[in-house]
Design a protein around this nucleic acid. Structure first.
Length: 413
RNA sequence: GCGGGCAUAGCUCAAUUGGUUAGAGCGCUGGAUUGUGGAUCCAGAGGUUGCGGGUUCAAGUCCCGUUGCUCGCCCCA
């Protein structure tokens, strides 16, 4: 083992992995484009305020997971831990409110200082979409449909399930929060240590506790859906009706709560059982309050983010690598000829590999290792006749082709 | 941030109770084959046993520390 190791929780994407990475992101982008989402990118770091303000001072991300540093100008900046805050910031700083509704797709690295484990990295990648300016539940339905379509395309949807819940509007949320805190406070002595902390910071999280004692108390806790106001209840029903219409199966999980403060109404996760403790492949929801919190004019928003590495783990097979045409010269004259031929083929958009050294046998071996589809063998014999020997490496069939017709012939591969 | 497990060749793994020069398969390189790949055969290269310290006549093996990985908690993608 070398002494030179990558920073903890980061890893290299070598070509085999990069192919899988690209496949996932390409499918996400393609699916999103079918729904009218346009790709955009924001910087991978922002003023720390951007994340602090939007994620809430008490969230785990802000309290312990941010990569924050001071730059040479004395500014405090943070490597983005998620994508939505940056998009919202761009929306405000770009004065884009006049172009609503906006539909954005993004993908790129995110950074969280956490203890790495399977499916959890310090630098990981997300791809996501944001729909800004649509207050109607049809927006919630559409983004979920987009996510499902993406997962279908990578063959992962079959092994995932959708959990959904409503966080209600601000009014419902506040009302419920009061009732819940009152109930839990009455059972303070029985709560786990973690949950006692959560009681202060984020009491709704206690509903999702895995501690057995907590679960007993939670079982009898007031149920949120009973405390949703009329408008919130109606909103949720319309989202569910949309999913029904699209034939998207879901499981209502009343304990599903988002850690981030700006979510309201719909929140959902798409989860796989095949990934161990970190099974969430996609998470999202509605964040009507976010743009307002950041100082923009109130603008409704819905979106999701999906972990690229986690999606990669769900791929059943590796996306195929492109197969080259191998050019195999024999002799110095042919060498020159192949160099030119390769250039011609590449201008046609074909993938041509030039063996760099060795005799025919060695070059053939190398061509085979590259999984070449066909080999073009060019020697003095061929040059004299103005032909090339074309060998199909799958069938082993071999024939001579006139040089004039060669490029055209190869385009078929 | 907390708790458990693991670390031997590029990869997957051996190595008896602590005992000689740390082995095998795959992969890699070369050859059989200087105008024909895959299959086969032959040969070769490749190791500070993660790192540092300790115990011992003797450490891959035992002890301590450290780094990394891994599984779980927390939280999430």
């Amino acid at each position: 083992m070398s002494q030179l190791q990558p920073v903890r929780g980061t890893h290299d994407l070598l070509p085999d992995e990069m192919r899988r990475y690209r496949f996932v992101v390409d499918q996400a982008r393609a699916a999103a484009e079918c729904f009218g989402y346009h790709e955009m990118a924001t910087p991978i770091f922002e003023f720390s305020e951007v994340f602090k303000r939007t994620l809430g001072d008490t969230s785990d991300i802000v309290t312990k997971e941010m990569y924050t540093f001071t730059d040479r100008g004395g500014e405090t900046v943070t490597l983005r831990p998620e994508g939505t805050a940056g998009v919202a910031r761009a929306f405000i700083s770009g004065g884009l409110a006049q172009h609503l509704p906006l539909k954005y797709f993004y993908s790129g690295p995110m950074f969280r200082y956490e203890r790495p484990q399977k499916g959890r990295l310090r630098q990981f990648h997300q791809t996501g979409i944001e729909l800004l300016g649509v207050a109607d539940p049809i927006g919630d339905v559409e983004i979920i449909a987009t996510g499902v379509e993406f997962l279908r395309r990578i063959g992962a949807w079959e092994r995932c399930y959708l959990e959904i819940n409503s966080l209600g509007d601000a009014e419902s949320r506040k009302a419920y929060r009061d009732v819940l805190v009152a109930y839990l406070s009455a059972h303070k002595d029985q709560l786990s240590k973690e949950s006692l902390e959560r009681l202060e910071r984020n009491p709704m999280r206690i509903l999702d506790s895995k501690d057995e004692g907590d679960r007993k108390i939670v079982a009898d806790a007031p149920v949120y859906s009973d405390h949703l106001n009329e408008a919130s209840r109606d909103f949720f029903q319309r989202v569910l009706a949309g999913l029904d219409a699209l034939g998207i199966a879901y499981k209502i999980n009343p304990r599903l709560v988002r850690g981030l403060d700006y979510y309201c109404h719909t929140c959902f996760e798409i989860i796989s059982n095949d990934l161990g403790a970190q099974g969430t492949v996609m998470g999202g929801g509605r964040y009507d309050g976010l743009v307002g919190i950041m100082g923009g004019t109130e603008t409704p928003g819905v979106g999701w983010a999906s972990g690229v590495e986690r999606c990669m783990m769900l791929l059943q097979q590796d996306p195929p690598a492109r197969r080259p045409i191998a050019l195999i010269p024999v002799g110095a004259a042919a060498e020159r000829e192949c160099l030119v031929l390769a250039d011609q083929l590449r201008r046609l958009g074909l993938y041509a590999e030039l063996g760099y050294s060795g005799n025919v046998g060695k070059r053939m071996k190398r061509a085979n290792k590259l999984n070449a589809r066909v080999a073009v063998i060019l020697g003095d014999d061929e040059l004299a006749k103005k032909v090339a020997t074309l060998r199909d490496l799958d069938s082993g069939e071999q024939r001579e082709i006139a040089m004039d017709a060669l490029a055209q012939q190869l385009e078929a591969y």
